[in-house]
Amino acid sequence: MGRLRRALASDHVAGWAFIGPAVLLIGVFGILPIVWGLVLSFQKSDLIDPNTPFVGLTNYRALAHDHVLRIAAGHTLVYTGVFVPVSVIGALFVAVALNRKIHLIRFYRTAVFVPVVASTIATSIMFLWLFDAQYGLANWLLGKIGVGPFGFFDSPRGALYAIIAMTVWGWVGFDVIIYLAALQGIPHELVEAAEIDGASRWSIFRSITVPLLGPATLLLVVWSSINALQLFDEVYFVTHGGPPPYNTAVVVWWLFSLAFRLGAAGYAAAIAYVLFLAILVLTMVQFWVGNKVVHYSS
């Protein structure tokens, strides 16, 4: 006991004893897979056969000739390109509207936040029903204002946009929370000074609020892009990549199918690494561009 206590009194021993379990677990389930994934991308593997021969750059060369991957990458880019601006700009307006003390504000905020805690699957089930082509409430409501009917998830050209609508619903509360936090950080004096200078509400919003929310916006653009590029659950469960042939196929859905359904784990690992690099590059570009545009006050 005495010896143990004395050993723990040493900063080095105590430090490693404290982080030991965490480091071991993250080593096995966090760092080892990163390395293994890279190794796997140079191998041929179907996840069953223990024999996984090295095939050099074959997997990476195959990327260029993968017709489905090209379609999936296109969809992923369209999805990200629409989802990110829609959700971020939408959240900006919603957050500004919610950033005031009026009656029912608690109810309004809760209504915007609740979808964040709904799982992707629960959300998907709700929207499968809401967007049902035949009996869905959405088509009935849209019909009331003279639009539609739509096929939604059944529509070859509309399915991806139905997924966008659904994921924006589930995600926007997240962005709103972060914008509200940033809005709280804008000093009142700035808004008051602008009012005294005779600025209208709209010009205060444009020339004070939006620029000061710059850091939050950059963060949300980066963060939502990372998540958008990894879209999977909804595609897997709701549309299965369809309507056929591949109208909502996205990159992660394709690499999942390759690894766990089609027996091409080595190739899937190569796609995963390329996706990782793409995300990394996009993130760096976004920060690089963002930091030129965004004004940091402190």
């Binding site: 990163i34 293994w36 996840l47 990372i226």
Partner: peptide
């Protein structure tokens, strides 16, 4: 060690899911 742990946060789950399955 801390930097190494932080670095794992940058890696998307898709990269590690196949090897994690194998592990």
């Amino acid at each position: 060690t801390f930097m190494l742990l932080l670095a794992t946060l940058m890696v998307p789950f898709q990269v590690v899911m196949i090897p994690t399955f194998l592990i």
